[in-house]
Design a protein around this nucleic acid. Structure first.
Length: 281
DNA sequence: CGCAATGTTCGAAA
DNA sequence: TTTTCGAACATTGC
């Protein structure tokens, strides 16, 4: 589920749900998903007594701003949060599900459950002053919907890469937050073949791609993200953008622009959807 | 039954 | 040395 628009919706939802709550206890059922620099005991001890001051997003990462630390959460492929009020907990609704791997208990006896079928998600606690360094080290690019993402720096980044444009965009280096769905959609909107080499894009193509990324992502955020598979009771999974997808998952269907059948290929080990007519190699 | 699945990281290869 | 590529992580569903 989660690329930038979906993570944004989840972070916003959490910000409205768990802000100002103080952590009483943390249970970890799958220690592998906690960063390995800390022991689990250290990690949970760090969190107990901390109050969530705000929740926000950077790229596809969720940042819980605590009293003294920042808790960073990445949902990877299928991570989800479920919040249970004290009443729901009391009525037995908050029992640990098969794929619940972390439970945050708050002092008002409400709970936040982290659920992840594939156990790919990841948690890490960092010092507040280390936030910038954390993202710089991972080479996470600028936020596509903020003024830090300019055509100039995007163009400079593309010039430096000999990778194909799609894998390069997925690397998060030129811009943060794009995943498989929104990369395919952005490249379609910009009429650029996903296998084109990044440094070979013309100035005008780069500008089209820049605009397409911003347009696709902002429209997806407005639509509440895409819900590709249907799960119930999941914070932030009410998105409707899947109905606006032009090429993703539409292989064989006519291109919305020229009616040529949409093609699906493997590119950089990912399913890749495009229109062979509109997006020439 | 085999393969693909919305992401990132690590080590190997170029 | 630096950048790019491919496997791995764990599980489910088509």
């Amino acid at each position: 589920m989660p690329e930038l628009p979906e993570v944004d919706v989840v972070a916003q939802g959490l910000n409205q749900t768990v802000k100002h709550l103080t952590i009483k206890k943390v249970q970890v059922f799958w220690p592998n998903m906690i960063n390995t620099d800390q022991t689990i005991n250290n990690w949970t001890d760090t969190l107990v007594g901390e109050t969530i001051e705000a929740v926000r997003r950077r790229g596809k990462y969720i940042l819980f701003e605590l009293t003294h630390w920042i808790l960073i959460s990445h949902l990877r492929m299928e991570g989800k949060y479920l919040y249970f009020t004290q009443k729901e907990v009391d009525s037995g609704l908050a029992t640990k599900a098969k794929h619940t791997h972390v439970i945050f208990h708050f002092i008002d006896d409400s709970q936040l459950h982290y659920h992840d079928v594939r156990k790919f998600g990841h948690f890490e606690c960092i010092e507040k002053k280390a936030e910038k360094h954390f993202f710089a080290e991972k080479q996470i690019g600028p936020e596509p919907l903020s003024e830090t993402f300019t055509l100039e720096n995007f163009s400079d980044a593309l010039k430096k890469s000999k990778q194909k444009i799609k894998p390069y965009l997925l690397s998060q280096k030129p811009v943060a937050g794009l995943g498989n769905i929104y990369v395919d959609e952005s490249l379609f909107q910009a009429k650029i073949h996903p296998g084109r080499l990044a440094y070979c894009l013309t100035k005008i193509e780069t500008a089209h791609l820049y605009e397409a990324i911003r347009d696709v992502l902002s429209r997806a955020v407005l639509a509440g993200g895409s819900t590709i598979r249907t799960y119930k009771n999941t914070l932030g999974e009410t998105g409707t953008f899947q109905t606006q997808l032009q090429v993703y998952g539409r292989q064989g269907e006519p291109c919305p622009r020229c009616h040529t059948p949409i093609k699906k290929i493997q590119l950089g080990q990912r399913g890749t959807h495009f229109c062979p007519q509109c997006q020439k190699e």
